[in-house]
C-alpha cells in the first residue's frame, strides 16, 4: 500500500544565540491512509514541532516530508498554504478558534480559504457542526462554549476542506477526563469513516485505546514504535 505520509531523515534545529536546539533529529517514519497514529513523549520531545512540520507551518532544516508523493520541503510558501488548506486539517490543544467569530463563522472561514461560495460555506459548516453534535450551538462564540465544545468546533473546522490527514496536537490536553474521552471517541469515529489521523498526546491510555500504532518520541527522534492493532481492526 502506498504511504499517505512519509518522513525521511528529518531535522529541525533552532538557534537561540549560540545554543543549538535539535527539536527533531534524524526522524523517519511513514503512515498509511486510514491509519490513526499516536505520538507520545514528554514535553520538549519534539512532538508539536513534528506536527508543525507535517502541517506545513514550519520547515525542516534537512530531510524530506512527503504527503501523497508531494514533497513539502520543495514547496514554496503559496504551495504550503494550499497544503495546509486542502491536505491537512489541524487541531490544537488550545483550540485556536477566533474568539470574535461564532462557531459557524470559524468553520466557514476555513471553507472561505477553500474558495467556497457563501451559501455553500454556510451549508457545509452547518453539516460539519451537526456531525460533531454542535448544530444548536453554531451561533455561539468560543467564549460561550465549553472546552469540549470548542474542540468539536475545531475538529469541524479541520475537516472543512476534506483533508487527507488530520493532525491533532494534544486534542485532549485542556479537557477533563470525561470530555477528553468524548473527543477521542469522536476522533475514532472519524477514523472509522476513513479520516487518517496523526495525534500527539500525553494520554497514553487514550492513545492505546483508539490508535492503530503508537510512536514514542524522545529528544526529537522515535525511540519506540508499537503496532497496537491492524489497520482493518478498529479500536
Amino acid at each position: 500500500m502506498k504511504h499517505l505520509l512519509k518522513i525521511q531523515n528529518c531535522y529541525r534545529i533552532y538557534f537561540k544565540g549560540t545554543i543549538q536546539i535539535q527539536a527533531v533529529r534524524n526522524l523517519s517514519f511513514s503512515m498509511r491512509s486510514g491509519e490513526l497514529v499516536s505520538i507520545i513523549g514528554r514535553s520538549g520531545s519534539g512532538k508539536s514541532t513534528l506536527l508543525n512540520l507535517i502541517g506545513g507551518l514550519d520547515t525542516p532544516n534537512q530531510g524530506h516530508i512527503w504527503i501523497q508523493d508531494k514533497d513539502l520541503t520543495r514547496m514554496n510558501r503559496t504551495e504550503l498554504a494550499r497544503h495546509r488548506r486542502y491536505m491537512v486539517g489541524m487541531i490544537f490543544q488550545s483550540f485556536n478558534l477566533i474568539p470574535s467569530r461564532t462557531a459557524l463563522e470559524n468553520v466557514s472561514l476555513a471553507l472561505a480559504f477553500g474558495g467556497k461560495g457563501r451559501s455553500e460555506r454556510e451549508q457545509t459548516a452547518i453539516r460539519l457542526l451537526d456531525s460533531v453534535g454542535l448544530k444548536d450551538r453554531m451561533n455561539h462564540s468560543p467564549g460561550e462554549l465549553s472546552g469540549g465544545e470548542c474542540q468539536r468546533v475545531a475538529i469541524a473546522r479541520a475537516l472543512a476542506n476534506r483533508p487527507l490527514l488530520l493532525l491533532a496536537d494534544e486534542p485532549t490536553g485542556n479537557l477533563d477526563s470525561k470530555t477528553a474521552e468524548d473527543i477521542l471517541d469522536l476522533l475514532r469515529k472519524l477514523n472509522r469513516k476513513g479520516v487518517s489521523i496523526l495525534m500527539v498526546t500525553h494520554d497514553q491510555l487514550g492513545a492505546e485505546r483508539i490508535s492503530h500504532r503508537r510512536l514514542q518520541l524522545m529528544d526529537g527522534t522515535i525511540i519506540k514504535e508499537e503496532q497496537l492493532r491492524s489497520l482493518h481492526e478498529t479500536g
Binding site: 502541517g55 510558501r77 498554504a81 495546509r84 488548506r85 480559504f113 473546522r157
Partner: peptide
Amino acid sequence: TREIGIMKAIGGSEGE
C-alpha cells in the same frame, strides 16, 4: 497576531 496564525494554519495564504 494569534488570529493571523490561526488563519495561516487553516489555509490562509500570505496573499490573502
